[in-house]
Amino acid sequence: MISATSFCGVEFGNPLILASGVWGSAASSLARAVENGAGGVTVKSLSLAPRAGHPNPTMVGTKTYFLNAVGLSNPGIEAGKEELRRYKELAAAPLIGSIFAGTADEFAQLAAAVSVSPIDLIELDLSCPNVGREFGEPFAYSAAAIGAITRQVKSATRVPVSVKLSPNAWNIAGLAAAAEAAGADAITAVNTVSGMAINVRARSPVLHNKQGGVSGPALFPLALKCVYDIYERVRIPIIGTGGVTTGEDALAMIMAGATLVGIGSAVYYRGAEVFKKIRAEMEGIMAEEGIKTLDEIRGAAHRACP
């Protein structure tokens, strides 16, 4: 049924991977996702220097959406590399090293630094919606900037590189094409979409950062459309992530064209066992529908009758 999935030459035990940001950057925490059935994990994005992130509240959960503005807190690349090394002692599943920086030079510097760790894939976080002009915004919507950063990172590392894009970009498929032309090995689609929650009795935004990134069920149909559009434009494989909460969601992501499926805020909705639950639901539907492998249905929605 669900078996190992090859992605950029890396073998994932199953296609369900922990998305960046959930469960942080500590090796023990990431390894626990693998114990709970994740086929691979993505570390919370690392920067050159440690960052404390935003004050609380940094996360809000509701039935229909999840909202966060953690503010890219992380212990910095040096301590981060130690966690990545430790992860490989605790777990066998592939490790994706997510990085973010303010300039193309810094991205390349980080990519080189993280590449000496035992990581299997680098993810470029070019699209965090929560740090305004400091990071993210200057790159998230520019094909030229994404191309330049990707090119520079590719020349600094031999580890495969996936470029993570923002669903706020109206031209996300064009941005994916720019990343591919610059040498990206994969696309991660999508980051959270910019949003806000206001407590009406407090007459105040709930997040300390005021705005944050929306994930959870509300993000799912947007993410699905982004993956669908990107699949039509590029030949490199896609990590489909954004609001996937059930096995049905995960299968839809694969039918839109994803090879790996990121699981993030579903941890909130389904608990630590989410990977096993989604996998079991996928296998249930596959059995009912006579689907033998995921390869058979990848991109199937593009071949549907008009």
Binding site: G21, V22, W23, G24, S25, A26, A27, S28, S29, L30, A31, R32, E35, K44, G53, N56, T58, M59, G61, F66, N68, V70, S73, L90, S265, V267, Y268, G271, A272
Partner: peptide, 22 residues
């Protein structure tokens, strides 16, 4: 503690990875 409900991973302890908020 950041989120308090098991998502952010801030309060995990080594080497078990369990969340002190959950």
């Amino acid at each position: 503690t950041k989120c308090g409900f098991g998502v952010c991973g801030q309060c995990c302890v080594d080497p078990l990875g369990i969340r002190m908020c959950v």
